[in-house]
């Protein structure tokens, strides 16, 4: 089964992997077994996404040249001086691809986190409280889901204005209903478990039940869903930039680079090849990470039974 699984990157990665450890393995013994059985896909995913996350963090300091300064070496082919060649203004493509990791990673990761955070709360409340509130929230989510992802994102950016922050927000809004659905169904799965009913009998306040009793049990599906979302977020954020609705020139951004340089694609293919390659590499990495995570979490689950 080909599953679009993905993972996380940048600051998100740290947060998410700690969460994984916290849910899956309370016991020390389980840590040991689990660590021994880390799937290869997860390791590969962590390596790729980790590399891009690192570039996003330290890119500007490791890039060999300034990304915005023009030079006379225009549309140079890749060479030992310019590893990925130069663009029409003579800017170093290698530096731009390296530094460009930051905008894409930031937009994708924070957009995903936003979508997961909001969707999570809606899904939990909808699933736990149920009744009319559930109907209302889910119908609103249905309205959001009625729009194709990119169209909805475009709509949001068109209303709010084109910049990185709004692009990020639009990704969050696109993802919110999808995450809410997944979280709601997972919530319904344990809604009537005896430990939840025990909490109700005890008279626990609703927020305690939702966030302390239910939420900790939902991390595995949330993490898997989040990682799937992240791979879409990467594509969505580069699409927005490509359409001129995300990062604005002269910011080095992969989507923007592909869009602006594509006129020179024939005589200087490297101006498109390298940013596009970076996009592909990141998406593959995120998918590997997600697939690996899912496999790993499943393994834990089956061990428990």
């Amino acid at each position: 089964m080909a599953v679009l699984g993905t993972g996380s990157g940048g600051d998100g990665e740290v947060a998410m992997t700690t969460a994984t450890v916290a849910i899956g393995a309370p016991a020390r013994t389980r840590h040991r077994h689990a660590l021994r059985a880390v799937p290869f896909t997860l390791l590969a995913g962590i390596a790729i996404v980790g590399l891009f996350a690192l570039l996003a963090a330290v890119g500007p300091w490791v890039a060999p040249r300034d990304v915005e300064s023009h030079s006379s070496a225009r549309l140079q082919a890749p060479s030992s001086a310019y590893w990925f060649g130069t663009d029409r203004y003579g800017r170093d493509m290698f530096s731009r691809v390296v530094v460009g990791s930051r905008t894409t990673m930031t937009m994708a990761v924070s957009g995903t986190l936003l979508g997961v955070a909001v969707g999570l709360v809606i899904g939990l409340v909808s699933g736990y409280v149920g009744g009319r509130l559930d109907e209302l929230l889910m119908r609103i989510m249905d309205i959001f889901m009625a729009f194709p992802s990119l169209l909805l994102a475009l709509l949001v950016v068109a209303i709010l204005g084109a910049n990185v922050v709004n692009a990020m927000a639009s990704i969050g809004i696109v993802f919110m209903p999808r995450v809410a659905r997944v979280v709601r169904s997972a919530t319904l799965g344990i809604r009537h478990a005896a430990f939840i009913e025990a909490a109700e009998v005890r008279g626990e306040p609703t927020p305690h039940i939702i966030f302390r009793e239910i939420l900790p049990n939902l991390w595995p599906p949330i993490i898997v869903e989040g990682s799937i979302r992240l791979s879409y977020a990467v594509l969505l954020s580069v699409s927005l930039s490509y359409l001129g609705l995300g990062a604005q020139p002269p910011t080095p951004d992969w989507g923007l680079m592909v869009s602006k340089e594509r006129a020179f694609m024939v005589q200087a293919p490297w101006v498109v090849l390298f940013p596009a390659g970076a996009i592909v590499a990141l998406v593959v990495g995120v998918n590997l990470l997600g697939d690996g995570l899912r496999e790993w979490l499943m393994a834990w689950k089956s061990r428990d039974e």
């Binding site: 309370p26 005896a194 430990f195 025990a198 900790p216 049990n217």
Partner: peptide
């Protein structure tokens, strides 16, 4: 199902 699996 009687105990929350995430709590000691």
């Amino acid at each position: 199902a009687t105990l929350n699996p995430q709590k000691t």
